[in-house]
Nucleic acid binder design. Structure first.
Length: 634
RNA sequence: GCUGACGUAGCUCAGUAGGUAGAGCGUAUCCUUGGUAAGGAUAAGGUCACCGGUUCAAUCCCGGUCGUCAGCUCCA
């Protein structure tokens, strides 16, 4: 007998050699029926795993991450099996579970079409109906290599060869299909219920663009058809929030064929943008920044000096003026260095916080462009802070607080990453060490959770990145704080110290919004276009019921306008329902419906875009509340 | 940049086994003055992304270019 400690802390006596599934059956029928995989001690295992000694056991169903992953992973094996049945010449690469499903990469002469996906789905359904058990087998490196080489599975053979010497190699077999796999898997193909293949895409073998491009099939699966339907419905809903779609519908912004990656802002989008910039200036004033503006085009010598000409050339647009090379700035820092050097500085001036809403241009790969999220020209809400080494940690903590206050205002959740020295970089290891630990110290003193991204820093220094989530669950880098020991050297920045001698200051680059354009894209999706009143391009629409109330409506609008409120009057001779519908679709926060009754009593019938008809209210009262709401940025 | 799909009116999309195009929404004008998510009529609006080829004839077939989308790669 062995002692197995269960999740609830209870200890169960089991016969040695019992499988996890048998133990689950012992505990309850329901648990056994829903069980997919289990965690025995610290190892995720199949249900067929047998228990040989005392330990802890947790059994997972689809509700857990572990269960979901195994479920989807097994589905990816079924996908591969179906593809091999239909296209026997296909070579298999890898097929893991991912966030909402799984994928499998294939190498074949045949180009998969959407029709093929339907056929493959049908074949998968057959495999599921066959209810094939998944059988794990541990094999030696030689056996594994021989088996996959014989099948001509060169990608599998490559994977095996790259496994560490002491790695345990296992295969999983279901019917005629056998795959190299660490597992775990669910007991049989029949457990999979609702399957859907989502899309086709190219993907490089091992994610390296120098390797061959394989064909990747994405899919998902669920234990119930209703859960699949719900997932598909959520995807549709998310599409409705897509900022590209809303940007067009709400006439905010657009990217046109004439300028790929160079966004246009329409009048309504500019209102939103200017409000954001006003807010930005307000908080930067509170945090004691001063604002500058540096030129968009600067000469080649400057970019050579900054290192960009050597390290960032492939992303820079260049031009020739009077036979001299110039570059359109991809970053604002070199300009900010020149501003710093335009006068002498004393240690007494530090920290100097210089901010700039700087328009930068970067050549991004055409395939990478995406609405406002990934563009070729964007405005960074940049700042460069010059200081004494002793001020680093305090300054970084201040920036973290500023960024946090911005994201809190919009109700964003975010996560933080610390990126360290990349392969292509400037500066000594000691500098990198010191810069990285200064960032880390600030994070630790703020008590922030963060993830480390080894080798993901900028070429001039390590960085802290803030990542926000969009409506499809993708994360986008917005805020960043980057320490830079390089530029102050290259531009020979100095300050006069207490001792009367010249010293080198320390500098950080930082952005809070990141890119104004990207931030607007994220805000659009976050609010599904229904921006809070302070940001709404139109805050109030006055809707007269008939022409008789037109003058009254205009008088109200003028009063609101005089208070700085963005107001429109719908003067068209349409029915009231029609005008309301339109204002509602435009996501205008407040509608003031005015008919004879309101005109006589000097009131308005208020309608809120969220709550609908609020009935008759006093106009002055409404105006007061509205102004307060705008001021509070609620 | 790479792989695949796509590109028809301002928007969303139909369509032609090759004979130069249609709907809804929107816009304009007129009728309607209607109390909380679509009143009616009429009209305007298209070099069917661009360039070339095949053909008596190309929006449709073929090739190239540009762009969009989904991924990969890369990054605010």
């Amino acid at each position: 007998m062995v002692k197995i400690t269960l999740k609830d802390g209870s200890v169960k006596q089991c016969e040695q050699g019992m499988t996890v599934l048998q133990i689950a059956e012992d505990i309850s029928k329901e648990l056994a029926r829903n069980a997919l995989v289990a965690k025995l001690n610290d190892q995720i295992v199949d249900l067929a795993w047998s228990v040989e000694e005392d330990g802890t056991l947790e059994i997972f169903n689809f509700a857990s991450e572990e269960g979901k992953n195994a479920y989807r992973h097994t589905t990816s094996h079924i996908l591969a099996q179906a593809v091999l049945r239909l296209f026997p010449e296909t070579k298999l690469a890898i097929g893991p579970a991912i966030a909402d499903g799984y994928y499998y990469d294939f190498d074949t002469e045949h180009t998969f079409t959407p029709d093929d996906l339907l056929k493959i789905e049908e074949e998968m359904a057959k495999i599921i109906k066959e209810d094939l058990p998944l059988v794990r087998k541990e094999v030696s490196r030689e056996e594994a290599l021989a088996m996959f080489k014989e099948k001509g599975e060169k990608y599998k053979a490559e994977l095996i060869e790259d496994l560490p010497a002491d790695a345990l190699i296992s295969t999983y077999q279901q019917g005629e299909f056998i795959d190299l796999c660490a597992g775990p898997h669910i007991p049989s193909t029949g457990k999979i219920k609702a399957v859907k293949l989502m899309s086709l895409a190219g993907a490089y073998w091992r994610g390296n663009e120098k390797n061959k491009m394989l064909q990747r099939i994405y899919g998902t699966s669920f234990p119930k058809k209703s859960e699949l339907d719900e997932y598909l419905f959520r995807l549709e809903e998310a599409k409705k929030r897509d900022h590209r779609k809303l940007g067009q519908e709400l006439k905010l912004f657009a990217v046109m064929d004439e300028g790929p990656g160079f966004p246009f802002f329409f009048p309504k989008g500019m209102v939103l943008r200017n409000e954001l910039e006003n807010y930005w200036r307000q908080i930067h004033r509170e945090w004691h920044y001063e604002e500058i503006k540096t030129p968009i085009i600067l000469n080649r010598q400057l970019w050579e000096r900054s290192g960009h000409w050597d390290h960032y050339r492939e992303n820079m647009y260049t031009t020739i003026i009077d036979e001299e090379d110039y570059a359109i700035k991809p970053m604002n820092c070199p300009g900010a260095m020149l501003v710093y050097n335009a006068e002498l500085h004393s240690y007494r001036d530090f920290p100097i916080r210089t901010a700039e809403l700087g328009l930068v241009h970067r050549h991004e790969l055409s395939g990478a462009l995406h609405g406002l999220m990934r563009v070729r020209s964007f405005t960074q809400d940049d700042a460069h802070i010059f200081m004494l080494p002793s001020q680093i940690t305090e300054e970084i903590k201040g920036v973290i607080d500023l960024v946090d206050s911005v994201y809190k205002l919009f109700g964003f959740s975010y996560h933080v990453e610390l990126s360290t020295k990349p392969e292509k970089s400037m500066g000594s290891d000691e500098d990198w060490e010191m810069a990285t630990s200064a960032l880390e110290k600030a994070l630790q003193e703020k008590g922030m959770d963060y993830k480390i991204n080894p080798g993901d820093g900028a070429f001039y220094g390590p960085k802290i990145d803030f990542h926000l989530q969009d409506s499809l669950g993708r994360t986008w880098q917005c805020g960043t704080i980057q320490l830079d020991f390089q530029l102050p050297e290259k531009f020979e920045l100095t300050y006069v110290g207490e001792d009367g001698q010249k010293h080198r200051p320390v500098m950080i680059h930082r952005v809070a919004f990141g890119s104004i354009e990207r931030f607007i894209g994220i805000l659009t999706e976050h609010y599904a276009g229904a921006f809070p009143t302070w940001l709404s391009p139109v805050q109030v629409k006055v809707i007269p019921i008939t022409e008789r109330q037109l003058a009254y409506a205009q008088k109200l609008a003028q009063e609101l306008f005089a208070e700085g409120i963005r107001v429109e009057v719908d003067e068209r001779s349409e029915k009231i329902g029609y005008k309301i519908r339109e204002a509602q679709l435009e996501k205008i926060p407040y509608m003031l419906v005015v008919g004879d009754k309101e005109m006589e009593s000097g009131t308005v019938a208020l309608r809120n875009r969220k709550e609908g008809d609020k009935g008759s209210v006093d106009f002055a009262e409404f105006q007061k509340k509205l102004l307060e709401e705008i001021k509070q940025k609620k």
